[in-house]
Design a protein around this nucleic acid. Structure first.
Lengths: 341, 341
DNA sequence: TCGGATTGAGAAAACGTTTTCAGGAAAGTC
DNA sequence: GACTTTCCTGAAAACGTTTTCTCAATCCGA
């Protein structure tokens, strides 16, 4: 079982374990010939140091945990990718956890994250109880929140200005003359869903348009609910002329249902989505959407974490990215160039 | 620093470390009151066992590594998700590695995977040198290959029948009467790219259509090359009437460029892509594509790995999934229902 | 009452590193 | 030539668990 240990290497090089460790670790004094001999022994045995044992004594695992709701959602996939890329330079490894917006799953993950003595955590919180998160922080594990905020815990946080994004989207519809504007919103317990809904309401209020609660449909941030609610939206008694879909997957579902039902976009229904996607420009008509810098969110979160790992006493920071409305033609706006890509 | 250890718990419960370990671990004989006392002490101290130390003596880390080229590619995102879901039941945790088709990056990852004494590995090999992979296997680490095969190593492997998929795609075009069919192919060193190209060639040969090398354009499996090569394709002296794009991202790029150039699909150019995507049915016209069971690939790979972890002597298996051609309208085939979803 | 299970608990070893302590040899300084 | 510094090496402790090994007390049947 278990490959060669440094003891085997030492024996083969006719040297003490200490010396072997020094030769391979490249610290302390070791004569040139000894180092050479040890290296050869290690190579001959195909020796690879045991990082577990090293972690044991060093107290660091060089592992970071990333907890998101679903890495198959392109948004989080990009965030994760940004984190991984950034963290790789510093030789950290990423443990990926999908919590599926389920507080129990999240809690289970936080527990093993703590037990495995991960060096740091990047978390997109589901909105469940905070006891474990607090305990983790109290235990000294650095935590960075990404995409979602949590009240009452002091941590680095990286956000997108979801309200501003939603305001821009709905404002765009208002400027084009729409007055009955529906929203396919996300689940109430999710921070970004609440914020986007708030932005939607703000935009209407600012324009003096009354908010009609019947036009607010709550989905689950997945394609199936976008699909179902799109149908609900068009079969409403006093059907809206425009809809704001609050995340990428629900936009997808809604567009599919609209197409199946033969709803003309933008003539019968204008559509603006939150989160721009690579396929948005190839639709007919091309989709107007709020673009978020998802990859950069990950990069920023990773940077904050790395900084805190270097110096644990840096005060908590919050970084807010501004989203950008990418106007295409799905709301009836005049034709434009496809925009930079 | 470092939270409470089992020694602290033992002290507080006025009991030996051994007994504390037994009480918390739930093995051996411990009286009911003692167990109770130890549990209370652990709770009071917010004690969480150190998995590193446990790994040290048990020789298992309960961590699996997943190496793919890019988890931001929806295909791999789904594979990874399938793996994670499957493996979670057995309390395994996933270490995610993006190798970017770069053998050096892959090698670096394999090294730390070995040093961290990961219990098993699911790898989508980049096609680089195999020394490290062999060494890992020789060291007793179970490995499952996913999506891509490697010659000369005995491992469990989970594949899609890429040739059959490509033959189906190109066969479809041929049946519709196309004779000049181009391919935007993937990088030669990648297994799936070679297989899909082979399937393309086979389909043409089977139909007695000569293979014109000028219609074979090699991309990099990313959107930018699809974009660039789409333009090359339409500006060819004797322009093809149809194109087979060999992966999801290149399809995306190509479709964008075709749209910008005003190339009518399918009238001026029929398009069939490899890898069906959720946005395929909402395009105009809806995209015909070869669907791969990406999530199930991950599930199957994870199952094979778990099985081997349970019993290391099970003979190596290869699981091959059949892809499925989803006919929509981008090749000019008659209109159909949007298909089940 | 004796002897073997059964139950409960602790001391010490083990896992594979790194770090601390310590000591000897060579080289430089006064 | 005595003393310090520099260079090289090794023994042992430490990290926090789990796993033997022991040992004592209680229980049970003969």
């Amino acid at each position: 079982m278990g490959g060669p240990t440094i003891r085997d290497v030492a024996r083969r090089a006719r040297v003490s374990v200490t010396t072997a460790a020094r030769a391979l670790g490249g610290y302390g004094y070791v004569s040139v010939e000894t180092r050479q001999r040890v290296r050869e022994a290690a190579a001959a045995l195909d020796y690879h140091p045991n990082a577990i044992a090293r972690s044991m004594i060093k107290g660091r695992t060089h592992t970071l945990a990333v907890v998101v709701s679903d890495n198959a959602n392109p948004f989080f996939a990009a965030v994760v990718r940004g984190i991984e890329d950034t963290v790789l330079d510093q030789q950290y490894t990423v443990m990926l956890c999908n919590a599926d917006e389920d507080p129990r799953k999240e809690a289970a993950y936080l527990r093993v994250i703590r037990e495995k003595r991960v060096d740091g955590l990047i978390l997109s919180p589901s909105g469940g109880p905070l006891a474990l998160l607090r305990s983790l922080l109290a235990g000294g594990t650095p935590v960075v929140l990404v995409d979602r905020r949590v009240r009452g815990v002091r941590t680095d946080t990286v956000l997108v200005d979801n309200r501003a994004g939603a305001r821009a989207a709905v404002g765009h519809l208002l400027r084009l003359g729409h007055r009955r504007i529906g929203i396919i919103s996300g689940p109430r317990q999710v921070f970004t869903a609440r914020e986007r809904l708030a932005g939607y309401v703000e935009a209407l209020r600012n324009a003096g348009v009354p908010v009609d609660r019947r036009l607010i449909l709550e989905g689950n941030f997945k394609a199936d609910s976008g699909y179902a609610l799109a149908e609900r939206m068009v079969s409403l008694p006093h059907r809206p002329t425009a809809v704001f879909t609050a995340n990428n997957l629900m936009t997808l579902g809604a567009l599919l249902r609209f197409k199946e039902l033969g709803v003309q976009i933008p003539q019968e229904m204008a559509v603006v989505g939150f989160d721009d996607m690579p396929w948005a420009p190839i639709l007919t008509p091309p989709l107007t959407a709020v673009a978020q810098p998802s990859y950069d969110l990950g990069v920023a979160a990773a940077r904050l974490l790395l900084q805190r790992l270097r110096d644990p006493r840096t005060p908590a920071q919050t970084v807010v990215f501004q989203p950008r409305l990418v106007v295409r033609e799905s709301c009836g706006a005049g034709r434009r160039r496809a925009g930079r890509r």
